[in-house]
Every structure is written in structure tokens, then in C-alpha cells.
Amino acid sequence: MTTETLWTLATVLVFPGGLFALVLGLALKGVERRAIARLQRRIGPPLVQPFYDLLKLMRKRTLIPDTANAFVFLAVPVAGLASMAVAAGMIPIAGFFEPSPLLGNLVVLFYLISIPAVSLMLAGSASGSPYGAIGFSREMAIVLAYEGPILLSLVSVALYAGALTGQPVLLNLTEIVRYQQQHGAFLFDPWMWPALLTYLCFIPANLGIAPFDIPEAESEILEGPLVEYSGPPLGLMKMMSVTKAVVVLGLGIALFFPNGPAGLAGLLVFIIKCLVLVLAVSLLKAAVGRMRIDQAVLFYLKWPELLGFAGLALAIARF
């Protein structure tokens, strides 16, 4: 193995993928639970509660239902977590970290981001539980609804950055970040606002946050796809979802507002941006109830889709 391969492996397993993304994700989850508790005027769990929960799950027994397909049931959490570790390794942190070009570009990242949703669907259908099946169908519906807008948003950014740098399309995330470092963030560019709004709409649906936590609605379908999981596989599923939060927030930061100072301060600025996003998301979660699946699908096919097309039109108009 060459040093480059080893370095790429380290970015996937330790920083910023794997270990770092997991720890940051768990910490953000703790902040979210605490913030919601404070918004409801209660004390709330300690900030490290998600770490306790994860360690606790490692002590519990693993039960596999008779009706489940055991191989798929146990393989799916591993696949989901692995894809998220790779995706986290592909997120650049301005001034601090540039991902290895070996891992691929924005298109690969887009596919990796949809793998957790596929894992949840497979988990729900492989568990053999009717609640899992309902969760599966709801997850499928909402993925089909938000996948269009997020693709439009990513393509708009790639086309826009391409137009500004004189290429047909710029799919390299590192270069998108570098361009914004030199010429100012897309957050402050009105041409990019529709794409930014589309991305913001995509965050709650992908992370399963109210009002779009329909596939995992714990009070009506008992966490849907996760209903039959217990012990370490459930822990892997939780790890997948917190790492996914880091990937999705990190990608949003890289696409629209990556600017930060060089060195360790850049990492600090990145974490602060994540915290601000998580606090906004907690406010949303504490403020609203859950939609029905048909309302959510209709919402995504209407407004974010429209915004996405507007963003795409603006990006093309810039050529």
C-alpha cells in the first residue's frame, strides 16, 4: 500500500470520517436533546447521554426474530455505518482538511448519502414485522419525494461554481470550497438562495426530524424499521444516524458557507457552524408536530422541488 492509500484509509476511519464523525455526531445529538429539554422548560439529560445510550446498547442481548432474514437484518446496519464513514471522509473542512481525491466527487457523495435510507428500508422489510413494513413504505415514499430536490440543489451548486470558474461543471467539492474561500460564500450570493433553501428543506427529512420523522414515528409505528432491533445492531443503527447528521450538515456547510480560518481554528469554526444548525433543527423539532406521509410527500414534490428548479434555472442563467 502506498502512503496515499493509507492516508485515505485514515481519513475514512479516524478523521474526519469514522471516529471523529461519530464522536461529533453523538455530541451534537446530546446538544439537541438538551436544547429541546430547555425549550420545554425542563432540565434534560446530560450532554453525554448519547454516549451512555450507545455503551448501554453494547451490553444488551441481540435478538433476531424468527420471521427475519438474519443475514440482511444484521448486515444492513454495518453497510449503512460504513457508507456514512466514507461519506464523512469526503467532507472538506475549510482551512483544515481536504479530502483525498481517491474517494470520488459530489456524485459519489450523493449516492453514499442515500445509502442510509436504503439500509433503513432493507432493515424494515428484513425484520419481518408489520411495523417495519409500514416504516419501509413510508421511508421509500419520503426518499422518492426529497431525492429530486436535493439532486437539483447539488447540481445547481456544481453548475454555478463551474460557470464562475469557467468550466462546464465543477463536481470536486474541494475546489468548490476553495473557490468560496477566495471569492466569498454562496450563502451571501442571492443567485444561490433557492438552492440553499432547497438544501435546508432536505435536512429535516433526511435526518428524520419533526415534522418529517414519519418513517420512524415512535409513537405510532414504534420507530418503524428499528422496531425489531436490539442490543449492538441497534447501536450500529444509532451510530449510522448520528454520523449521517454530521455528513448532511457538513455537506451543507461545505456547499454554501465553508469559510473559516486556517489551521485548528478552521475545525473549531466548522464545529460551531454545526452547533448553530443543530440548535435551529432543535427549535424546529420542539416547535412542530408530525405530518402525515401524504402531506410530507406532497410538500416535497411542491415547494422544495419548485425551489430546486428555480435554483437550477438561476445557475444555468449564469453561463
Binding site: 429539554a37 420545554q40 444488551k60 428499528l226 422496531v227 425489531e228 432491533y229 441497534l234
Partner: peptide, 21 residues
């Protein structure tokens, strides 16, 4: 409900018996 906060003890209500302690 928020008034009597059991979450501060680390508790969490779960929907599935397989997640319970």
C-alpha cells in the same frame, strides 16, 4: 410530560419492547 422530567435521569420512552431496559 415536561413538568415531571424523567429524561434527566437518562430515561427515554421507547416504542419497541426490544429497546427497553
Amino acid at each position: 410530560i415536561p413538568r415531571y422530567d424523567v429524561e434527566r435521569l437518562g430515561c427515554q420512552y421507547c416504542g419497541s419492547p426490544k429497546h427497553a431496559d
